[in-house]
Amino acid sequence: MSKHGGVLSGLRVLLVEDEMLVSLLIEDMLADMGCIVVGPHDRVDRALVAARAERIDIALLDVNVGGEKVYPVAEILAARHVPLLFISGYGQGAIPPEHPEWRACTKPFRADDLMDMMVAQIRAG
């Protein structure tokens, strides 16, 4: 937890995930990191609203949300220069070819891995 010197502490994280248990897991991890969860949103339309309106430091996006793909949300965030990280069982294969710079985190993951990737994305962005 102190690995990254608390750089994530206080960050506002947008979470888009439709499976409750997975959502719970991530929420707990984020809480442990000291992050503030924006959402969690289990529908793309609500996520879109949040992506436009809310103050967000980094976003965690499940690829398939309630039968829809989350990419429109990602586009908006990218336009706002918000770093983002996909959560997906498909791994890097979920990234559309137009955005090779986007990263994906493969479920299941440990809290440490999640943190490393978030830090990396923040630093890159």
Binding site: E19, L21, L25, D28, G89, K107, P108
Partner: peptide, 16 residues
């Protein structure tokens, strides 16, 4: 995908 999902669910249940 499902297996990974499942495992994630199991992990979540456990931690909760």
């Amino acid at each position: 995908h499902r297996v990974k999902n499942m495992l994630t669910v199991v992990i979540s249940l456990a931690t909760q």
